[in-house]
């Protein structure tokens, strides 16, 4: 019940908009999110169910990056 993809808002007109992923566009319902053109939204069944929080995304990726570094360090120590 969870198939949803991150798409970029390319047009907004009231509660409706158009979002894009890899060159594919679709009309989406924006009633549930406060998203503007340029924002990334999570789209499920033609609806935006949440805005993608860029800052959190970067934090998460940073977390993995540092984990990788530590991991490589440990692996280096072990050998």
């Amino acid at each position: 019940m969870c198939l949803a993809v991150p798409m970029k808002v390319v047009k907004r007109e009231g509660d409706k908009g158009v979002a894009e992923l890899e060159g594919v566009t679709r009309e989406v319902a924006l009633h549930f999110v406060d998203a503007q053109v340029g924002d990334y939204i999570l789209v499920h069944a033609g609806f935006a169910i949440q805005k993608v929080d860029e800052e959190s995304a970067l934090e998460t990726l940073e977390l993995f990056r540092s984990m990788m570094e530590e991991g490589l360090l440990e692996a280096g120590d072990a050998s």
């Binding site: 198939l3 993809v5 992923l21 890899e22 060159g23 594919v24 679709r26 789209v43």
Partner: peptide
Amino acid sequence: RREVSGICEILG
């Protein structure tokens, strides 16, 4: 192609 990937992700 990216558009094929995109639609596949959207529709499953």
